[in-house]
Amino acid sequence: KELVLALYDYQEKSPREVTMKKGDILTLLNSTNKDWWKVEVNGRQGAVPAAYVKKL
């Protein structure tokens, strides 16, 4: 499985998103959308802005 690093804090704004903190390591589930990537963090799945994460 592919991992990404959170470059910034992000507070979810809808139920389809997830909150992450700078430095979090997230499991990347889907990166086909260039703006929003689906990730899993702390057992929750949701979208985060692609510009806020970097593939490891």
Rank of each mutant, 00 (worst) to 15 (best):
K34M: 10
R44L: 07
E12Y: 05
T19Y: 03
I25M: 06
N42R: 11
V41N: 13
K21I: 08
T32M: 11
L26H: 03
K54G: 09
V41R: 12
Q45V: 15
S31N: 09
K1D: 10
T32N: 13
L28D: 01
V53G: 01
L29T: 06
S31I: 09
I25G: 00
Y52H: 09
K55L: 14
N30H: 08
A50R: 09
T32G: 11
V41M: 13
W37G: 00
L28M: 03
A47E: 15
V53S: 00
W37K: 00
S14F: 06
Q45M: 11
A6V: 10
S31A: 12
E40F: 05
V4T: 02
V48K: 01
L29N: 02
V18A: 05
N30Y: 07
E2Q: 14
S14G: 12
T27R: 11
K55Q: 10
N33C: 12
A47S: 14
K55Y: 11
V4I: 07
T27N: 08
A6D: 01
W36D: 01
E40T: 06
Q11F: 14
P49A: 02
A50V: 06
V41Y: 11
Q45H: 08
R16C: 15
E12K: 13
E2W: 13
R16V: 12
N33D: 14
W37I: 07
E12I: 07
L29V: 12
K54N: 06
Y52D: 06
L7E: 04
V48S: 01
G23P: 01
V48I: 09
I25A: 02
N42Y: 08
K34C: 12
K13F: 06
Y8M: 12
A50N: 03
V41K: 14
K22T: 07
T27M: 12
V39M: 00
Y8D: 08
A47Y: 15
D24N: 07
L28Q: 00
K1T: 13
V18P: 01
S14K: 07
G46E: 04
L28I: 06
K54T: 13
E17H: 07
A50K: 07
K1Q: 13
L5Q: 11
W37M: 04
P49I: 04
R44H: 08
R16D: 15
G46V: 10
V48D: 02
K54Y: 09
V53M: 07
V39L: 03
K22E: 07
K21Q: 10
P15K: 10
K54H: 11
Y8Q: 13
I25W: 05
G43N: 07
W37P: 02
Q11V: 14
V4L: 12
I25V: 11
E12R: 13
N42F: 07
K54R: 12
K1P: 14
A51G: 13
D35Q: 10
S31Y: 09
Q11P: 06
Q45L: 09
E17P: 05
M20K: 02
A51W: 12
W37D: 01
P15F: 10
R44Q: 08
D9A: 06
L7K: 05
K22F: 05
A51Q: 12
V41A: 12
V39W: 00
D24R: 01
T27L: 14
Y8F: 13
L26M: 14
E2S: 11
L29P: 00
L5Y: 11
P49C: 06
Q45I: 15
D24T: 07
V41I: 15
Y8N: 09
G46H: 05
S31T: 11
L7N: 02
L26R: 00
D24S: 06
L26V: 07
D24P: 00
Y10V: 01
E40H: 04
T27H: 10
I25D: 00
T19F: 05
G23S: 02
E17Q: 10
A51I: 11
E17C: 07
V48W: 02
L56R: 02
D9E: 05
E17K: 05
T19I: 04
R16K: 13
L5I: 15
V18I: 14
E17V: 05
D9H: 05
E40V: 07
S14R: 07
W37C: 04
L5W: 07
Y10W: 10
E2L: 12
K1F: 13
T32I: 12
K54L: 12
K55M: 12
G46M: 11
N30I: 08
K55N: 07
L3R: 10
Q45R: 11
W36I: 05
L29Y: 04
G46S: 03
W37L: 06
L7P: 00
L7S: 02
V18F: 15
W37R: 00
L29Q: 03
V48R: 01
V53N: 02
Y10A: 00
P15C: 11
V18R: 03
Q45Y: 09
V48G: 02
K1A: 12
V48T: 02
L7H: 02
L26S: 01
K21T: 09
V39Q: 01
Y10H: 03
V48Q: 00
Y8R: 15
V48C: 04
Y10I: 00
M20I: 15
P15D: 13
E40R: 06
K54V: 14
D9W: 04
W36G: 00
K1Y: 14
W36S: 03
K54P: 05
A51S: 14
L56T: 06
G23L: 02
Y8S: 08
L3S: 08
L29A: 03
L3N: 06
E17F: 06
Y52Q: 07
Y8K: 13
T32F: 10
V4F: 06
L5F: 10
R44M: 08
K34Q: 11
Q11A: 12
P15N: 11
E40D: 09
P49L: 05
P49D: 03
T27A: 09
K55G: 06
T27Y: 12
G23M: 02
G46W: 06
V18D: 01
K21A: 09
K38Q: 15
G43Q: 06
E2P: 11
R44C: 07
R44Y: 06
R16Q: 14
E12L: 08
S14H: 10
L56K: 03
T27E: 10
